[in-house]
Deep mutational scan, measured.
Amino acid sequence: MAAGGDHGSPDSYRSPLASRYASPEMCFVFSDRYKFRTWRQLWLWLAEAEQTLGLPITDEQIQEMKSNLENIDFKMAAEEEKRLRHDVMAHVHTFGHCCPKAAGIIHLGATSCYVGDNTDLIILRNALDLLLPKLARVISRLADFAKERASLPTLGFTHFQPAQLTTVGKRCCLWIQDLCMDLQNLKRVRDDLRFRGVKGTTGTQASFLQLFEGDDHKVEQLDKMVTEKAGFKRAFIITGQTYTRKVDIEVLSVLASLGASVHKICTDIRLLANLKEMEEPFEKQQIGSSAMPYKRNPMRSERCCSLARHLMTLVMDPLQTASVQWFERTLDDSANRRICLAEAFLTADTILNTLQNISEGLVVYPKVIERRIRQELPFMATENIIMAMVKAGGSRQDCHEKIRVLSQQAASVVKQEGGDNDLIERIQVDAYFSPIHSQLDHLLDPSSFTGRASQQVQRFLEEEVYPLLKPYESVMKVKAELCL
């Protein structure tokens, strides 16, 4: 049975990233139509530049190519590739079939990587351009969430054990800070992308030097003109047959890092959902379990974690691919890159769409948070109580021993009897502590235990987050809708 299948058929496997999760716009960027249309555009740009620099290419040939950029006979191309065992030459023939007058000058002087690699770089750039505003929107939604809850005390956790208090907004800023680093890295790697350009079979530009009869300047002009037509500021000066596969490492490393950030955020949300302090959106008709109707599973956060793990592992592909590119190139890269580049971007696209949807509907339960604080705060307040007693004339050592005994009794009630923490009640009825009984409410005010959390939130948002989001103001209103 021949390899390949009808990918629109229910009898043929289709990647869930495309069929179930990723956005239509990201799927289109990695589609065959987008790819092969870009090949034709690159052939047109090459012909236009070659004509401008004096090669015998007519206006009629150029116009014929322009008129057929979208006229792609995919069936013919597939048949040609089956016959020739070469995808680029299959599309040269297919393009030439609908451009008979231009057929002889299509791909003039070029090698397969002229269309293959340059198209990949265009796709990487455009895919990054799709991700950047999506990530900015996630940051914006979380920034709104953090600002609104900047002063809401909550129990902090280290080692997932109760620690000092923080605020809900401050905790959210930990998430935002990681995503801001990801946004900066995505922008950097996007701006650092260079075009492969017009380089020939081993990167020496020998074929173009021959076409222009040894004119170095025209060869350099050709490279520059096509690079500018493709919208790049610069091209690699040095290439082998391909652009260095280190570029793929750079791009997928940034995406993998984004995956790590999203995994951490969504894990926190899942843990908070278990504590009943916070939940992701839950639709009115949504079913959490087929057997347990009360369940409210954090399905979206779980999906993000599941896909983020996949995204983090994909960076190993370009690392290994770059390491086995012998001399000017081997074909070890080809099949692998067809999979890992598309999957990385479709996965990143999915987790950003999902995280935006989550961040637009996060639900906080202040009463649950308050109750958990009441359970733990008495123990945390013991040092403040000791200091207040010393100020009232008591002995630190005597007070410490009193607190120690009462704390152990209260802990026994919590752990052995399943009761509430009654340390404060014990202190309130103990005559030894009568000098500070009137101060206990103040000493137990949760806001006095959150330090500068709310001020940190305000400063972080104003100095770091809002300036970073400013270039994306025009796209901030787009909502994230999930079908599944």
Rank of each mutant, 00 (worst) to 15 (best):
G4Q: 05
G5C: 06
G8E: 06
P10T: 09
S15E: 07
P16L: 12
A18D: 15
R20H: 05
R20V: 11
P24S: 15
E25P: 00
F28N: 05
F28T: 10
F30C: 02
S31M: 00
K35D: 01
L42E: 02
L44K: 06
A47E: 12
A47R: 10
A49G: 04
Q51Y: 05
Q51D: 15
G54H: 06
P56G: 11
D59Y: 09
S67W: 03
E70F: 13
N71G: 05
M76T: 00
E79L: 03
E79S: 02
E81S: 00
K82P: 14
M89S: 09
H91T: 00
H91C: 07
T94W: 12
T94M: 00
H97M: 04
P100E: 08
A103L: 05
A103S: 08
G104C: 04
L108T: 11
C113H: 01
N118M: 10
L121F: 05
L121H: 02
A127W: 00
A127E: 15
L132W: 04
L132I: 09
L132V: 08
P133F: 03
R141D: 14
A143R: 07
A143S: 10
D144C: 13
A146N: 13
A146P: 03
K147F: 01
E148D: 11
T154N: 02
G156N: 11
T158K: 15
Q164S: 03
T166K: 10
V168H: 15
K170Q: 11
L174D: 13
W175Q: 15
L179V: 03
C180M: 04
L183V: 08
N185E: 05
N185C: 12
L186N: 13
R190C: 01
R194C: 00
T202K: 01
Q205P: 02
A206R: 06
A206Y: 13
S207R: 04
F208W: 00
Q210K: 00
F212W: 03
E213V: 02
H217Y: 15
V219W: 07
Q221P: 00
E228D: 05
K229M: 15
G231D: 12
R234T: 10
A235L: 11
T239D: 01
Q241S: 02
T242K: 04
T244R: 10
T244L: 00
S253G: 13
A256M: 14
G259M: 04
V262G: 11
T267I: 03
D268K: 00
L271G: 03
E277H: 12
M278G: 04
K284G: 12
I287L: 06
I287A: 07
G288M: 01
G288C: 02
P293T: 02
K295F: 15
M299W: 06
E302L: 07
E302Y: 01
C304W: 11
C305A: 09
L307H: 14
A308D: 12
R309L: 11
R309A: 07
H310K: 12
L311V: 07
L311E: 08
M316E: 13
P318N: 03
L319V: 09
W326Y: 11
F327R: 03
F327W: 05
R329K: 08
T330V: 12
S334T: 01
F345S: 11
I351Q: 07
E370F: 02
I373R: 07
R374W: 09
R374V: 13
R374L: 11
L377S: 06
P378T: 11
M380E: 10
T382W: 14
N384F: 04
N384S: 13
N384K: 10
G394E: 14
R396E: 15
D398V: 07
C399R: 09
C399A: 09
S407I: 01
E417T: 12
E417Y: 15
L423Y: 14
E425R: 14
S438Y: 00
Q439E: 11
Q439T: 03
P446I: 00
F449V: 08
R452D: 01
Q455R: 13
Q458Y: 06
R459N: 05
L468Q: 09
L469M: 07
P471V: 06
P471D: 14
S474G: 12
M476H: 14
K477V: 10
V478G: 12
A480N: 14
E481K: 02
